[in-house]
Design a protein around this nucleic acid. Structure first.
Lengths: 340, 340
DNA sequence: GTGAAAGCGCTAACAT
DNA sequence: ATGTTAGCGCTTTCAC
């Protein structure tokens, strides 16, 4: 086990002080004679010196780390977010520390704390619930936070999304295609982002004078972060319920694309045709949604752009100047919806 | 900006030395009088002291970081891998540093170096190519590495997969269903994992006395890490080529599931039926593959298990004792293949 | 323009 | 059983 090469070795090799080596290595715009600079550079190359980032961080109280906290990796929505962040820092000197929370506030607090203990200064976080009391316990001074999906009630950047308008867009599209018997399927209405979608649906029904039939509002009776394919499964199950009705709907708005994919499999399993027999519209616009045999009509949540914006915000350490962005939905019409 | 609470503050508050605080905080099984221990614990609580992990790491030369290096996040295979790792450390004290490389050796070298500079000691890496000369330049002493997907020619743990046998399993399944006109579509045969699959196909064709028709072996003429949906796109394109043949095949073996999904969309776009008109078999067994309208028959590469094993290996720092595991493929029969 | 030296927060060898 | 202290590798103030 050979000894690590430190800044002292470089200093000795090049006959200068460690201060000078540090200045050269960090490309400080400090006046350094070209001669010394070159000698240092040569020594660095000869000894294959690599800066120890831990020592540097401890001393300078800064680093190139970006902490990312997301609920899980099974909803591809978060994958798109992550992809944007990873693409954005590819080739740069930044490092991503990724944590998942399983939508558990206890885990959320734990991973955030852990990130701070590692002196991470830039954090992108998608908290899951509105239960963020634990946040008050944490000292966030000097930390750049950008919150996505759910707004955080602290001094930080927020990138929100107009979920309610998205839901309205979806119902509008269905109504314009002549649908009156419209169903809504969803996992439990437990988070703000779901509540807003639900409210959008109900408001739209009222706006368009569509009778609200209880049987058409199918909400899963359990939530699971651990069940493999949970959203897909409830999509199937809830759609099955709908299809078993004496008077089934002609269109289904699904809380998100994963649920819609479950719905579609169930429908096609029954040899029904999408969109001839029944129209399906999702929410998210996952990459996979355009790849299905029947490409899914959906509401674009521009997850990738959201990730990009989050990265930019967190990188341009906007001291004190916090932005509060609200992204607007777009309807993406593909093949899973048709007129009646 | 308030001052950070350090171990010295706790020591002062509880009237002991920093050494004692350190011992208590780290739960050292060292004899410490219950009285002092309690006082320290109280001081920690009162001051809300949190260990600074950077200082700890610099001093002790160890940490709880796990570096993960993968080519990209657009192939869901790597997502399954990541999921397993994230699930595995959920609630533990480990942190994941995630890097993507875009299958670029230069990036691979860069992110590995960066991880080492951060004193990360445990690394799970899926290198993309066989071009790993750059690895020789890096001092890996004291580092626990587990390589997946592609074997690394250094002292480390390897978790490989029997790609060739997987391909053979796929062709065997097709042959047993009566197919003779079998096509193979793929991105460029540029990496070991692809070469082995290709060889498996050719060998199988010879074994079963299936004539090798050039037109049935469709290889994409370009590779792209940046093109969104690249694999899906070539799946469509290559399948389109096949379908345009005067004498099209009755079955297609796709290099992987993403390509198969492209193939299926193209086939159904032409109003052809899977598997009646043409059978499709993939490779990977992505989560999404079971969610399609026509669930995909495929070769299971047990990515999740692979991730779990990798995590276990890297955590049980097996000093000097390296394992070399080869995972075997399984055929997963679903609805996309049928007899002729 | 360059160097000496203090110190970031912590652990661990050594002393008591 | 507890405390003292050196030092991990680095940056940065201050002095020259």
């Amino acid at each position: 086990l050979k000894k690590r090469v430190t800044i002292y070795d470089v200093a000795r090799e090049s006959g200068v002080s460690v201060a000078t080596v540090s200045r050269v290595v960090n490309n400080v715009e400090y006046s350094i004679s070209p001669k010394l600079r070159e000698e240092v550079i040569n020594a660095v190359a000869k000894l294959e010196y690599k800066q120890n980032l831990v020592g540097k961080c401890l001393r300078s109280n800064q680093n190139n780390d970006i902490g990312v906290i997301i609920p899980n990796m099974s909803n591809y929505y978060y994958i798109m977010l992550m992809s944007a962040i990873n693409d954005g820092i590819l080739g740069s000197d930044y490092n991503v520390l990724l944590s998942t929370t399983s939508r558990n506030p206890q885990n959320e607090k734990k991973v955030l704390t852990s990130l701070l203990q590692k002196m991470v200064k830039k954090i992108i976080i998608a908290v899951s619930s509105d239960n963020i009391n634990w946040l008050k316990d944490i000292d966030l001074s000097g930390i750049d936070i950008v919150a996505i999906e759910h707004k955080l009630d602290i001094k930080c950047n927020n990138i929100g999304f107009n979920y309610k308008e998205g839901a309205k867009l979806a119902i509008k599209h269905l109504v314009e295609m002549g649908h009156k018997k419209i169903a809504f399927i969803s996992s439990p209405i437990s988070y703000a982002s779901r509540i807003e979608r639900y409210n959008g649906v109900i408001e739209s029904f009222e706006d368009y004078n569509i009778e609200i039939i209880d049987e058409y509002i199918q909400i899963a009776d359990y939530e699971s972060e651990s069940e493999d394919k949970y959203e897909f499964n409830i999509g199937k199950q809830l759609t099955s319920n709908l299809l078993n009705l004496k008077n089934p709907p002609t269109a289904i708005f699904c809380l998100n694309d994963m649920i819609a994919i479950g719905a579609m499999q169930e429908i096609e399993r029954r040899k029904l045709d999408i969109p001839k027999d029944i129209s399906i519209i999702g929410f998210d616009n996952l990459t996979i949604s355009s790849m299905l045999s029947t490409p899914l009509t959906t509401i674009d949540q521009c997850a990738y752009e959201m990730g990009k914006m989050a990265l930019n915000l967190v990188l341009n350490e906007c001291n004190d100047k916090y932005t509060d962005i609200m992204l607007e939905p777009t309807l993406v019409i593909r093949k899973s919806t048709g007129s009646i």
